[in-house]
Nucleic acid binder design. Sequence first.
DNA 1: TATGAATGAGTGTTCATTCAT
DNA 2: CATGAATGAACACTCATTCAT
Lengths: 210, 210, 210, 210
Amino acid sequence: MTSSKQPRLGRPPASNSADTQERILAVARQSFAERGYEGTTNRLLAERAGITTGAIYHYFDSKREIYLAVDRDVGRRVFRRFREAEAGADTFVAKFEAILEVAHQMNSEDPSLARFLGAVRVDLQRHTELSEVMGVDGRLRDNAFLAAMVDHGIATGEVAPAQRELVLAFVRTVLIGLTDAVSDDLVAQRAAIDAIGALLEGSLIHPAAN
Amino acid sequence: MTSSKQPRLGRPPASNSADTQERILAVARQSFAERGYEGTTNRLLAERAGITTGAIYHYFDSKREIYLAVDRDVGRRVFRRFREAEAGADTFVAKFEAILEVAHQMNSEDPSLARFLGAVRVDLQRHTELSEVMGVDGRLRDNAFLAAMVDHGIATGEVAPAQRELVLAFVRTVLIGLTDAVSDDLVAQRAAIDAIGALLEGSLIHPAAN
Amino acid sequence: MTSSKQPRLGRPPASNSADTQERILAVARQSFAERGYEGTTNRLLAERAGITTGAIYHYFDSKREIYLAVDRDVGRRVFRRFREAEAGADTFVAKFEAILEVAHQMNSEDPSLARFLGAVRVDLQRHTELSEVMGVDGRLRDNAFLAAMVDHGIATGEVAPAQRELVLAFVRTVLIGLTDAVSDDLVAQRAAIDAIGALLEGSLIHPAAN
Amino acid sequence: MTSSKQPRLGRPPASNSADTQERILAVARQSFAERGYEGTTNRLLAERAGITTGAIYHYFDSKREIYLAVDRDVGRRVFRRFREAEAGADTFVAKFEAILEVAHQMNSEDPSLARFLGAVRVDLQRHTELSEVMGVDGRLRDNAFLAAMVDHGIATGEVAPAQRELVLAFVRTVLIGLTDAVSDDLVAQRAAIDAIGALLEGSLIHPAAN
DNA sequence: TATGAATGAGTGTTCATTCAT
DNA sequence: CATGAATGAACACTCATTCAT
């Protein structure tokens, strides 16, 4: 009668709420990173988290809510690491390089982080329902963080005040280029970071006399 | 410059078939850029092209085929402009800057081009069905083009042979950063390009004595 | 009259179990009345009763069982009041009017009663699973009660024996019309009841000579 | 290969648009009448209409739209018949009786009409999304129609001006009682109508001397 | 006595695609 | 060349119910 094959109803033995929720977040981060918001189906999340689709709604009100939760989670993690890296250096160049370095490190440890960051920009543009709710919060904080770093460069004399915006634009471009372009090719990413380091020190390009 | 007013040579105006196909391609480029592959429905394309969904299948075998056609089309256009820009300069730095400049120009003229390029990388990753068919083709050609440019830098002495890969990685990172990050903010894109120019000339960052 | 204030005899106040069950019945009556059988979810009942969905199953075997319990409860209450009203009058007309009056009164005191009665007919038709179990019971008892009242009218000479069925059909139609049509508009209900009274006394309509 | 069993894709041979739409409306009217708005599933409608669920959306934007369409359709039919019946009589009593008669007739011809009318009141109350859109329109027109009939009674002297509201409330109560209570029991409905006729002529109840 | 994690079947709706006309 | 009626598989989400704790 009660075969050991068929899954039973009711609360499964030894199931932990916080555990399941974290499992959902983890598989969601991965799937959102790989397949995007639309491409990530509840069925897929459920399968990978070892539950059924209905159970997801015990933890999150909607797919959108899952996405936002993942975004918050990723944002927090990355921001903490960035801040730590930046705090350990004292010139603008050193801070910038430290950040690139830690970005590379995180990408090695858990590629889904970087990939999610790359994907989130696209998905936010495509699904306005997401950006409306999330909005300013995370994005703005990033900008403020980078701006402070550049301002530090002005204080140390590394950056001319007049070029504040230029440097900021460059920093952003490089960071995004690194996450989007080569987040799944660690060798290329390593090369790009080294290149930027060399470039900042003036040892990458030797302008032709021309 | 390229006015759409003047009748195109001696061809009978608006041969229906070719016209419709081109209209489909144009609206598809826009929609794929804005909403991605999944987010673009046949119904939407049909509506914007002024036909019905069924009619689409007279011109393309499937949605996938439309995507590939748009990609080829965009690739060709961008490549031609890039090559022209590159040919008009004779140092590596000048070529690189010319390419950035033309990328900015194209973005001003038709934002859907840059946006599609930004989106295509994500969509290819998400829908393996697309990358399998398209595959090497376009992507590799880009790489060859950029590699040739760097090799020219080696020839002129601007780039040390040992740093070939680094420079290549940097170029790619910047190009991708520019399309993805700031393709819809022309001011920021302008700033980023200027920053790179200044950096290459050594006038952006002034390493602290420290 | 029936104050809810005075402590009910010597029983210990608020024995938890019975209290909870009654709370469930009360919120169920309201919800079934407003939203019907399908529209009433266990979650809603649980929320309004201040418990969880699982707890409901300690008191009732199923949603259906709750519905049946509410129906029995409502039936009992209404029947008691109807009987009291009827007993206090001695002609058919007076009895009928007394019943209409008490129906109006009950509707003022607790609209969920009348509304449930209006809804139950529809829900029974829609969900055969409900009527099967409940079946004859309550419905038949009502009919017997009304039939007795009409028979009394025959005894008093108010109703001709040959018109027994006609009068019964009329009484039923009016009662149902009153619960369904205007149960949430006390003014209209009042008017309808007054109209029936006048009609029975022959003072509402004055047939045209024609 | 192409077995004659499996349904083919594409447009089925000999399929007529207007025909299918009407088939959907017909089965929808029946199902909404029997099982209500919630209880009517798209799958059921599709099965009964001989199509698939997806095809429904070729004809209606949503389930709600189907409901509204059925309501409009039913409203129109009933209103036309009511008006014809009323126009053929010249006293208030005759008009009222004519209306009751035609209601009974329509119920014999197509029970789904009356049942839908009985159900619609409940479903509108339960699903505010429906009443919001439909709103005043139909309901108000009914009231205006009945009011005009009563006003005619005032003109003929059948109804005292002071009792206008009472008579109106009575008419409404009876009409609703007839649709809701006994729409599926033609014998009972016949009896109820005859009873009302007799009552209006003063031959149903003979007040006791008391 | 009650909680709340989980199930499995179901809902309305969308979509790429097919094909008779 | 084009229409538009229709399919079938998918999707996000809801619900009554179960049961370990």
